[in-house]
Amino acid sequence: MAQVRETKLPGVGVRHDFTAATGAEIGVIVHHDGRREILLYDDDDVDASSSVIQLSPLDARTMSEVLGASQVTEVVEAVQQHIEGLAIEWLTVPANSLAITTSIGGARYRSKTGASIVAVIRDHQSIPAPGADFRLAVDDVIVAVGTVEGVAALRQIIRPN
């Protein structure tokens, strides 16, 4: 993956840019209000850019689903293939889950099941290594790692049925 550079634009938001495999310079501005702007830099004048597409927050979400969905499964499959005996599972917290009533530490998931919650994805942002006092919320996606049995046990607790 290309290295993404981040630049703050005070009062506007953040600009991310990277060099694509074709050599094209691509930028994305994330505005404070959630709008995204996709930019392409000029070949002749590398400092100049033109705004190619403007996306509302919802459009940006749709766009990232379309662009990113297959990539996510690819990554998961790769992990499962490479690490023998280790299971990784992505769990969405349902509305009726008891998991939202206490913190991760309070529920003692690891000592009960042996599986660890290594990351939480909330609103398309990942929170790596959530602390013991982290509280899960409805629609969070948990990334759990452990033995096959351990992850299954955790699934039972998070989404009982």
């Binding site: 630049t7 703050k8 634009l9 005070p10 009062g11 506007v12 600009r15 840019d17 930028g27 501005i29 702007e37 930019l39 830099y41 590398v46 400092d47 100049a48 850019s49 033109s50 705004s51």
Partner: peptide, 28 residues
């Protein structure tokens, strides 16, 4: 005028340009 500058930048689609961040930091 920070107000005019940010409006001009947005209107002309120049927010992504590389001269924009140093100018905005100077205005801060």
């Amino acid at each position: 005028s920070a107000g005019i500058v940010s409006k001009v930048l947005a209107d002309l689609g120049r927010l992504g340009n590389r001269e924009t961040p140093p100018v905005l930091n100077m205005l801060v």
